[in-house]
Amino acid sequence: MKLTREGKGLLVTGILVAMAALNTGNNLIYLLASLMASLGILDMVAGWFNLRKLSGDVVLEEPVYAGSSKTISCRFFNDRRYRPAFLVSMKDVAAGISAVAPRVGAEEMTEINNTVTFRHRGRIYLSDIQLSSGYPFGFYRNVVKLNNPKSFLVYPELVDVRGLLSGLCSVSGSGALPHPSGEDFTDIRPYQQGDPMRDIHWKSTAKAGELMVKEFRAGISRQVTVALDTSAGAAPEIFEKGISLAASLVEMLFSQGYPVRLKTLAQVSVAARSREQLYHIMDMLALLQAEEPEPGTLDEDGQEMLLLIVCNPDSPIKKLEQQAAGVFNAIRL
């Protein structure tokens, strides 16, 4: 229970009136003091009853990208059989979530939709989410902490990289970034987990009785690797810019049909052929911190396309510059 600004006003006025009553012995002033005290007591009791058997939940439609607004649904549940609840708010200061339900009917659920924008990537914990209400008079705020800890990931902010990618194609010509579709396939093989649905050869699948996928021209891989410099020397804002750029490249390439994977100094993801795998890469990026190089991660990967994002001029990742189809310097962007 928290005393509000109005509650402090009541307290100060109440004390003044009570002092005047004691000082004068005037019963009418005692009556006013009784009124003030009664308002305070009723506010406390009615406020407690208002939040009784009330619970709540927050539902957020994923994926959530930093910097872009998202609809968040705050659900209020009233398990009481008879009395509705009034003016209940749900708040999580750390997560920046706030919603007010004017009325939650008995045995009803009220959903309040709000738009929320997260400024930074990372894991958002909803462990501090609480229901509160100052009903009926707003002198106190009764607070109930919700006991259903939840968390979700906020992916890095997406920026427009179409210009960067088109520039890359024009510079490198047809060999730099092969077109993801419309090419002849060379073989048909059984389906492996992660193969895109569009590569399934339905005719062969029907004949074989199991899923068969097309294999494309040998020697030219369509897979693109985005290598991100995660060395510790980068300035935080440059580092974030690099992550944002990596996420945007991965997202854009995936949407264009390229199997895309992420490589950092210490981690290598699987190539994203499905949306789940894309989100796996986004999960990585959402939680990415500065890393020390792990042996083997910076080794050459054959003939796949490599896009390099450099955040630190002295980074060990710069040794991949030679085989990179494109190098983006986060400091200059």
């Binding site: 000082n23 009784s34 009723l42």
Partner: peptide, 19 residues
């Protein structure tokens, strides 16, 4: 509630502030 409070509040007329 006001009636109850009015009846129960301890009375005093101290005249502390020279009222």
């Amino acid at each position: 509630v006001v009636t109850m409070m009015f009846v129960l509040i301890p009375r005093g007329a101290g005249g502390l502030l020279g009222s």
